[in-house]
Write a protein that binds this DNA or RNA. Structure first.
Lengths: 156, 156
DNA sequence: GCATAGTAGGTGCGTGCGCACCTAGCTGTC
DNA sequence: GACAGCTAGGTGCGCACGCACCTACTATGC
């Protein structure tokens, strides 16, 4: 039912399918993921991501600013996420000795335990709905595309 | 700095690159897009999307429920988006004669004009940062992937 | 030393949205 | 017709987040 050219630049059908499809797949997946994590673990996806990245870090600790970089949230957002996680005992905060302005978020044992259960179900979900639809060669190509595009998009 | 296997299922590196890359690219692009639309047109991306889909519809009008389906927002979210757009004169509302529970959102002339300026810059941005990084064959493959995956992800 | 600029983290405020619920109206069964 | 059950849209409430700003601290220039 397109109104045909109403005067100015629009996406071509191919562009629309490629870009719009990415938006659609992301939106649907996020709905599934948020519901799943909320029901099983009472945490949000960003909270899960913070726990995950802490688990990757040496000694399970990261500076707030490092958590904020390469996150979908701003520093203020991360600050509040860490506050929420601290309130339920999944992380603790500790001020940085080498720079007294700074603070570390540190994964607790309870946080690590929670992450493990959250992660196994999460991985299963993303595999079932998304990753399993692609062969290894296709996943490799997809990853290569993101590596190609991502550095061209400014972080801030 | 991975903590190596801490006991339960995790993404493989390949899976992590494919899925994490999608999240990263989407997040960065959305930041750019929101800032651009806000600065140039004082509208958000969801508001833009509603205007766009109205412009595609016959007579530039759609039922609220049809706007909500296949949107990233719920019905209540769409209801508020339409309310905001109505308040600034970009759409009007009209109750549906064939089902008196229902309502149409209708694009106004001002809304169409706004959409045109918003869209041209938006298309340019998405092309510059994303679409132009791919060849036509790659865009076709990407679109095919989304077509393959999307129906397997429940809408609600 | 002192002054200025820059940075890390936190916070008041405004806003956007989901959830649960409400009302009005449609539909189906009897 | 009467009544139950469903659906479309809107709304009160709570919450998460960005923006702008604040405080505490560090870094740089003199």
């Amino acid at each position: 039912m397109n109104d045909q050219d109403d005067g100015l630049e629009d996406f071509t059908p191919l562009e629309g399918d490629a870009w719009g499809g990415l938006l659609g797949v992301h939106g649907r997946m996020m709905r599934l993921i948020e519901r799943d994590l909320a029901e099983r673990c009472r945490i949000s996806h960003v909270e899960f991501e913070v726990l995950l990245r802490l688990s990757w870090a040496g000694n399970h600790r990261m500076r707030i600013q490092d958590l904020a970089a390469d996150s979908v949230l701003t520093r203020s957002g991360i600050s509040r996420v860490v506050e929420r996680l601290e309130r339920v005992g999944l992380v603790t905060r500790e001020s940085a000795p080498e720079d007294r302005r700074g603070a570390y978020a540190i994964l607790t044992d309870a946080g690590l335990a929670m992450l493990r259960t959250a992660r196994s179900g999460h991985v299963a979900l993303v595999r079932e709905r998304f990753l399993s639809r692609f062969g290894p060669d296709e996943l490799e190509q997809m990853a290569a595309w993101w590596r190609r595009v991502e550095p061209a998009i400014p972080t801030s």
